[in-house]
C-alpha cells in the first residue's frame, strides 16, 4: 500500500494576523480527481499553492507522494529544503494557473519545450517532438509557432496544460483554470482536463464548475473560511449536502 498522493493533516497558513487556512485535513489518492470548491477567500487556492510550495505552510503536515512538502526528514529533525531541492520536487507537480501565465516572449512550442530542455536536460530534438505531440493532444498542433498574444484565452490555457504535462508530472494542480475564460471557450479546456482524468492523472482542481466537479471528480471538497466544511462523493456533496453552508453556496452558484 503506497502513500496517498496528497496527504494533509491540520495544515495552517496565515498572512500576518489573518488566518487563511485553519487546519485542513485532506487526502487525495493516486489516480483520483479532487475538486476544491467554495466561495472566494475560502483558502482553496492558497491550499493548492501550498501543495507545490509556492506558499509556505505555517503549521500541520502536508505530504506529496510520501514526502513532506518543503522539508527533508533526518532522524527526528526536519530540515528545510534548499532552493534546488524545492525545484526538484516541483518538477513532479504540474500547475495550471487562472491567468495562464504563459511566457509571452516564447512561442507555444517554446513554452512547452522550455522546462524539459532547461530543467530536465532533455535534448532539443526530443523535446521538440514531445512538445509537438502534447500540443497535438490538446488540439493545438497547428498553433505551435504562435506567440501567446496571438492565441485566444482557451488556446493559451490548453498550451499551459501542455507545458505542465511536458515535465511528466505525477500530480496536476489546477487553480481555477476556466475562471478567466469567455464562456464559449470553457468547454475546450474542460475537455482536455476530462481526457487527462480518464488517462489516470491525479488531479487537484480548484473550480467553480459544479458540473465538471460532479461529472469528473472522485471527491468534492467544500471549503469555507479556511476549513473543510464537507468532503466526499461529489454526487452527494454537490447534490444533497449535509451542511447548511454548502447548501447556501450551491444555491448561489447553481
Amino acid at each position: 500500500m503506497s502513500a496517498p498522493m496528497v496527504h494533509a493533516r491540520g495544515v495552517r497558513k496565515h498572512y500576518g494576523k489573518l488566518e487563511v487556512l485553519k487546519g485542513i485535513d485532506l487526502t487525495v489518492e493516486r489516480g483520483q480527481v479532487c475538486c476544491l470548491l467554495g466561495p472566494s477567500g475560502s483558502g482553496k487556492s492558497t491550499f493548492l499553492r501550498c501543495i507545490n510550495h509556492l506558499e509556505k505552510v505555517d503549521g500541520g503536515r502536508l505530504a506529496v507522494d510520501g514526502h513532506l512538502v518543503g522539508y527533508r526528514r533526518h532522524g527526528n529533525r526536519l530540515h528545510e529544503l534548499r532552493e534546488q531541492e524545492v525545484a526538484q520536487r516541483r518538477r513532479e507537480i504540474g500547475m495550471v494557473f487562472q491567468r495562464f501565465n504563459l511566457f509571452p516572449h516564447m512561442t507555444a512550442l517554446e513554452n512547452v519545450m522550455e522546462a524539459p530542455v532547461r530543467v530536465s536536460g532533455v535534448g532539443r530534438a526530443e523535446a521538440h517532438k514531445t512538445a509537438q505531440r502534447l500540443l497535438d493532444r490538446v488540439g493545438l498542433g497547428d498553433r505551435a509557432a504562435h506567440y501567446p498574444a496571438h492565441l485566444s484565452g482557451g488556446q493559451q490555457q490548453r498550451v499551459a496544460i501542455a507545458r505542465a504535462l511536458a515535465m511528466k508530472p505525477k500530480l496536476m494542480l489546477f487553480d481555477e483554470p476556466t475562471s478567466a475564460l469567455d464562456p464559449e471557450l470553457v468547454g475546450d479546456v474542460l475537455d482536455v482536463m476530462r481526457q487527462l482524468a480518464s488517462d489516470g492523472m491525479t488531479m487537484v482542481v480548484v473550480t467553480h464548475e459544479i458540473g465538471f466537479a460532479r461529472e469528473v471528480g472522485d471527491t468534492a471538497v467544500f471549503m469555507d473560511e479556511g476549513v473543510v466544511v464537507e468532503a466526499g462523493d461529489p454526487k452527494r456533496v454537490l447534490v444533497q449536502p449535509e451542511q447548511e453552508r454548502t447548501r447556501a453556496f450551491l444555491a448561489k452558484v447553481l
Partner: peptide, 16 residues
C-alpha cells in the same frame, strides 16, 4: 509575478 510562479512550478530555479 505570475511569470515567476509559472517558472517555479515547472521546477526552474530562481537564477534560471
Amino acid at each position: 509575478t505570475g511569470q515567476t510562479e509559472a517558472a517555479h512550478s515547472l521546477g526552474m530555479r530562481p537564477a534560471l
